[in-house]
Design a protein around this nucleic acid. Structure first.
Length: 431
RNA sequence: GGUGGGGUUCCCGAGCGGUCAAAGGGAACAGACUGUAAAUCUGUCGGCGAUGCCUUCGGAGGUUCGAAUCCUCCCCCCACCA
C-alpha cells in the first residue's frame, strides 16, 4: 500500500511538512496518531474545513488513528493568525452548542467506533490551567522576540487595530494542545491549514523542548477556485455541512457548479476515487467533463450526507435539468447510478400557498415575491420583465399574469422557476 | 487626554447647496451563447400595483424655498502625539 505521505502529496493535500522523510518512515513502521483542530466558531463546519476532514479520513483509511480536536478552549481565545481583525469572543454556551454540531458532522467522515478515531475537546485541559505553573512549565519555552517576528502575527502588529494580549496567547495554547495530546494519546502529528504553520511549528518545538521528542507537522494549501475565489463561499454565504443550513440538494448543486478547470483537483481532494481515473476524467471535454462533474457532486454529497441523500439530490437535479446517461468509462469506480432520471421527487425547496388565494388568482410577481424567489415586488417585476420567470416550465410574459388553480398539476402543486437554476415547488396548503 | 483625517446605498469609492435614488468599479440577478462551467455581450441592480409617491448618505437637532452637501451637539473609526 502506498505511503500516506505519498497519497496526500499526490492528491494535493500537502503544502508544507516538517520532516518529509522521517514522517514517511513513521507511517510505514507504526500506527500513527495525528490530529487537526477545528474551530468551534460556528455550529456547523463548512466546505472550507473539508480538506482537513478528508485528510483525517485518509489517515484513518491508511490504518492510522485520527483525532479531531475541537477547540472548545482555544475558541475562547480566538486565533489571530492571518486575521485582519480581532475575532469576537464566544460565550461558553455557544461554544458547547457548536461542539455538538461539529461532532455530528465529523461522524459522517470518520469512524469513531472502538477508538478508531477520537474526538476531543481541548477545553478539557485548557480551562483548568493554573496561570503561574503554566508560565513556568510552558511559557518559558517561548521567545516573544520570535513570536512577534512571525509572519502570522506581522499583519496584525502592522495593522491599526493591533493585537490583543489574549490573542497573543493563542499560539502558546495551541502548542500546548499538541504537547498534551502527545502525552495523553501519543499523538505525533498535527495537520492544519497553511495559516496554521506557525502554530504547528510552535507545537513541534515545544514538544522537542519540553518532552524531548520529535513531532511532525503538515499544512494543507489554501484551496482556491480557478477563478481566484476562496473555495466554498458563494454569494449566499458559506456552504455548510449541516443539512439544516445547506440542504443535500444545494450541496450537490454547489459541486455541480465547479469550474471546469477545478474538476480534477476537486475530485482528488474531495472524493476517494482512484487517482488514475481522476486524471483521465480531468482531461475530458464538453459533455464528458460535465459527467465527471456530476460524479464529483454525487460522491461529495454522499460523503457528507450519505448515499440516500446523494441519490435524491442526483434524481432531483436530473428531473429539473434533464438527465443524460453517464458513460461507463468516466470514473468507473464511482457507484453512481448511470441510467437516466428516476421517478422520485426532487429535493427542491417547497413553499405553500393557500387554496383561497389560488382560487382568486394571484399575480405572478406577488407569488414570486411571497415564496422567496424575489426579494421585493419590484425585484419580481424586473425578473419577469427580463424573461427569467417560469410557471410550470413556461416563461411568463407579463408580471400580472394570474396564477390560479388551473395551473395546478395532478399532484396539486406547481413548479416555479427563476432563471436557469432556482426552482420552487408550490403546494396547496392543507387545512 | 491633545491635534489632524474620516463615517455615502451589499462592498470599494465619487459627490461637497438644487439637474441626487446619488458617478465609476466590484459583487449579485436576468437574457443571449452553452455543458446546470468559464469567458463574452446586453439589461437590471432602495421600496411601493408606480409617468407619481415614500425611505436612504453615522445619530439628533438647526440654517435654507431646497441639505449627502452648510452649522451645532453626540456616537464610532483611523493617524500622529501623550
Amino acid at each position: 500500500m502506498a505511503n500516506l505521505v505519498d497519497t496526500l502529496r499526490e492528491r494535493g493535500f500537502i503544502e508544507q511538512a516538517t520532516h518529509d522523510e522521517e514522517l514517511r518512515e513513521l507511517f510505514d513502521t507504526q500506527r500513527v496518531t495525528g490530529y487537526i483542530g477545528f474551530d468551534p466558531t460556528a455550529s456547523s463546519l463548512h466546505i472550507g474545513s473539508l480538506v482537513p476532514i478528508m485528510a483525517l479520513a485518509h489517515l484513518q483509511r491508511a490504518g492510522h488513528r485520527p483525532i479531531a480536536l475541537v477547540g472548545g478552549g482555544t475558541g475562547m481565545v480566538g486565533d489571530p493568525s492571518g486575521k485582519t481583525e480581532m475575532r469576537k469572543l464566544l460565550s461558553l454556551e455557544e461554544i458547547e452548542q457548536n461542539v455538538a454540531g461539529i461532532k455530528q458532522q465529523l461522524s459522517h467522515f470518520l469512524d469513531f467506533s472502538g477508538g478508531r478515531a477520537l474526538l476531543l475537546n481541548n477545553a478539557e485541559w485548557l480551562t483548568s490551567l493554573a496561570y503561574i505553573p503554566f508560565l513556568r512549565e510552558i511559557g518559558r519555552h517561548f521567545s516573544v522576540n520570535r513570536m512577534i517576528k512571525a509572519e502570522s502575527y506581522k499583519m496584525r502588529l502592522d495593522s491599526e487595530e493591533g493585537l490583543s494580549f489574549i490573542e497573543f496567547n493563542y499560539q502558546v495554547l495551541q502548542a500546548y494542545d499538541f504537547l498534551e495530546l502527545l502525552r495523553r494519546h501519543d499523538c505525533r502529528l498535527q495537520m492544519g491549514g497553511s495559516d496554521q504553520w506557525g502554530n504547528i511549528v510552535a507545537g513541534v518545538e515545544l514538544i522537542r523542548r519540553a518532552a524531548q521528542q520529535t513531532a511532525f507537522g503538515i499544512t494543507f494549501p489554501l484551496i482556491t477556485t480557478s477563478s481566484g475565489q476562496k473555495m466554498g463561499k458563494t454569494a449566499k454565504g458559506a456552504v455548510w455541512l449541516d443539512p439544516a443550513r445547506t440542504s443535500a440538494y444545494e450541496y450537490y448543486q454547489f459541486w455541480i457548479n465547479t469550474d471546469d478547470r477545478d474538476v480534477g483537483r476537486f475530485l482528488s481532494l474531495f472524493t476517494f476515487l482512484p487517482l488514475e481515473e481522476i486524471r483521465s476524467a480531468a482531461r475530458m471535454q464538453g459533455a464528458a467533463l460535465n459527467a465527471a462533474k456530476r460524479i464529483l457532486a454525487f460522491e461529495a454529497t454522499r460523503l457528507a450526507h450519505g448515499r440516500e441523500q446523494a441519490l435524491l439530490a442526483l434524481q432531483g437535479a436530473q428531473r429539473l435539468f434533464g438527465g443524460r446517461e453517464l458513460p461507463q468509462e468516466v470514473l468507473p469506480s464511482s457507484d453512481i447510478p448511470r441510467r437516466g432520471p428516476g421517478e422520485e421527487a426532487a429535493g427542491v425547496p417547497v413553499a405553500f400557498v393557500s387554496r383561497e388565494k389560488l382560487q382568486q388568482g394571484i399575480p405572478a410577481f406577488r407569488l414570486f415575491q411571497e415564496v422567496g424567489l424575489a426579494a421585493s415586488g419590484a425585484a419580481a417585476r424586473r425578473l419577469i420583465d427580463q424573461g427569467g420567470a417560469y410557471v410550470n416550465g413556461e416563461r411568463i410574459d407579463g408580471y400580472d399574469r394570474l396564477v390560479t388553480a388551473a395551473d395546478l398539476d395532478a399532484e396539486e402543486g406547481l413548479m416555479l422557476r427563476c432563471g436557469k437554476k432556482t426552482y420552487r415547488r408550490i403546494r396547496v396548503e392543507k387545512k
